[in-house]
Amino acid sequence: MASIIHMGREDPGYSFSAAPTAASANREHSFYPYVPNPSPLPSNSPRYTDNGGSTLGIAGATFTIMAGDTRSTSGYSINTRYAPKLFLIGGTGTEHKSARIVLSVVGFAADGHALAERLDTIVKMYKYQHGKDMSVAACAQRLSHILYGKRFFPYYVQALLGGIDEKGAGALYSYDPVGSYEREQCKAAGAAASLITPFLDNQVNYKNQYVPGSGSGLDLQARQAVPLPQQHVETLVRDAFSSAVERHIEVGDGLQMMTITVDGIQEVLIPLKQD
């Protein structure tokens, strides 16, 4: 029967063998009949910009403090004095009620927003699917996978993820733009990271500090780092930023600080110099 119609041909004889394959693919907007597929060719147009600013996270025994300045820059211009770099992840609704995870992103702000939004959606979906909150460790690994998923067109951001781990201790994870990550006690990221890091090495990890009277030369005993009390960490964060403001033009205007404990997240906004 079919052979009569197709006149002995084996392949079906419909007329679309040389036909459009891309015509109905990738329709971007309703009114637009045909949008060409994105070109795989490299383009000279800019895809990234640096919006400046710095972030900082310190984990304590029962808390994690995340902080970031609120200035947004392009070149020598200040875009705005208030563009938060800290994002609540998970919780309920747009208010993120009862969230226990904070993401900070510094670098290209548009990628930062996109990343925060994606992670937030994933953490919220996790709760719908599993009926429990996502642990920071799981969230941290997932964030790494999201970043690595764009390995060849990366989210141009340095991310920090803070929360409380399953034992109730402060947890802090740091990331590079393509998803390498590790858990750390403290980490500074962004424009003034090189200014803040040595301060943190000395004041949090007690680098170059020795036990008084423990001898000289090789006999010197290094001072052992211990988890710091919350009040003390807050002071360190404020000092780190007020110093960074003095020496880096992209840092300033305001300091947004979030303290994560098992009881919730407290947010404060402290003014920094606007010059």
Partner: peptide, 25 residues
């Protein structure tokens, strides 16, 4: 009978020749 819905209601290759999609690319 042509069992392939893609071709229903379209001109037949064996009568009209294959569709020329040149203008699309």
């Amino acid at each position: 009978m042509n069992h392939f819905p893609e071709a229903w209601g379209r001109p037949r290759d064996d009568v009209y020749g294959a569709y020329n999609g040149a203008h699309l690319a």
